[in-house]
Design a protein around this nucleic acid. Structure first.
Length: 388
DNA sequence: GTTCTAGAAC
DNA sequence: GTTCTAGAAC
């Protein structure tokens, strides 16, 4: 019975093939769909229409199918060209959950709120991910691809340490890696913005020079420089007036929804309910630094084995915009009792956003807190401060 | 595959 | 009391 249920879920990709609204691109042999739980900002699947469970069922005869799937992968990447250059990984999961051959097309930022578990990272950043070229070569040379043992699979899923795919950073904690990946992503977004601005200025300069040469001074239209959000641009993919769309492309174009090319890039905004780091501790701390001791007197803890990241982080999930508006604030920052003196109580009420501490966190000084004289002073000091 | 949660572990 | 984990449910 359980097995039947699992089989039902494993068939989800097959069922998606029955609804053309899921298709970004469709051909006679495969379709491109958006990943349900994208593990990067841009994550697609090229799903074969033919009944293959995974790459282990393919032989040399199926190389043309792989060629075709790669062609569709390139088409969907091509659709992202209105955005600044991004690197994509293209390949197969060696041990896939889904009952249908599917090729992953995923940007290499791995910055996503759906990246929650060690296995998510390792499924793309270990031998569990077989790059397309390797799969193609193995089929060409040896005619088949072997599946891996359950034991190897489980070992690779939980492989540690976690190594950044963009630099030498290494950590054992997924939260640290996520924070680190965000820094990469933000840096690249900033670079892209800068480049856009420079390009725009260069264009304006060159146009002005042309105008001068032609002795026809003309005012340039005052167009704001497009910086953010990229998602806004993403609503109009494949804008190429010189090239008419094929029927398949037209169909894919029609089925584009608001964020079809990926989620909005300003996701890290604190107000954004989809922010993957919302309700998690600050990640401006130095990477690889051992976790700071919790405030409050708690005895030394024995080192744990395995990955640790905050509970809320692990359970973070998609929330519709506005979801939090009528919600209880996060207990970590908004618990009823004061955890430590905040800006409001020490500097005249000019606190930042609720739950956000301004400046360095004062250290606990138990002798001060429990010294009646100091306590009295603290209580007396408040009205004076707030009235000023 | 993801989400949820009871109960173990701390 | 809080955090983590395994397993059930979907």
């Amino acid at each position: 019975m359980e097995a039947d249920k699992l089989a039902y879920f494993r068939d989800e990709l097959k069922r998606k093939l029955n609804d053309k609204r899921n298709f970004l691109i469709e051909s006679d042999r495969a379709v491109v769909i958006k990943a349900d739980y994208p593990k990067s900002q841009y994550h697609f699947r090229v799903v074969a229409k033919e009944e293959f469970r995974d790459i282990t069922q393919l032989t040399e005869e199926h190389l043309p199918l792989l060629d075709h799937m790669m062609d569709l992968a390139n088409q969907i990447i091509e659709k992202q060209k209105h955005l600044e250059s991004r690197n994509f990984l293209i390949g197969f999961k060696v041990n896939t959950f889904w009952n249908r051959l599917n090729l992953h097309v995923i940007s290499d930022d791995f910055y996503s709120m759906a990246m929650k578990r060690l296995s998510h990272w390792n499924s793309f950043n270990s031998e569990l991910f077989m790059p397309f070229q390797i799969a193609y070569m193995m089929l060409s040379v040896q005619g088949s691809i072997e599946s891996i043992s359950e034991q190897s699979y489980n070992k690779l899923r939980n492989k540690m340490p976690l190594r950044c795919n963009q630099c030498e950073f290494v950590t054992n904690m997924l939260l640290d890696l996520k924070a680190h990946l965000y820094q990469h992503w933000r840096l690249k977004e900033d670079e892209r913005d800068q480049k856009k601005k420079v390009d725009k200025i260069m264009k304006m300069i060159s146009e002005t020079k042309l105008d001068e040469a032609e002795a026809k001074p003309e005012l340039l239209p005052e167009e704001p420089i497009q910086t953010q959000p990229v998602a806004a641009i993403a609503q109009y993919p494949n804008e190429n007036p010189g090239k008419p769309l094929t029927p398949q492309q037209q169909q894919a174009q029609n089925s584009y929804d608001k964020y079809i090319n990926g989620p909005p890039v300003n996701m890290m905004n604190q107000k954004n309910p989809n922010n993957p780091f919302r309700n998690t501790p600050h990640f401006d701390r130095q990477p690889q630094k051992p976790p700071q001791p919790r405030f409050g007197p708690r005895g030394p803890m024995a080192p744990r084995t395995g990955p640790r990241f905050p509970h809320k982080q692990q359970h973070n999930r998609f929330r519709a915009p506005g979801f939090n508006e009528c919600r209880q604030p996060h207990p970590l920052y908004h618990s009823g009792r004061q955890q430590f003196p905040n800006a409001a109580s020490v500097s005249g009420g000019q606190a930042g956003p609720p739950g956000q501490q301004q400046g360095a966190r004062p250290k606990w000084n138990l002798s001060k807190i429990f010294n009646p004289q100091n306590r009295q002073n603290a209580v007396q000091a408040q009205p004076t401060n707030s009235s000023s």
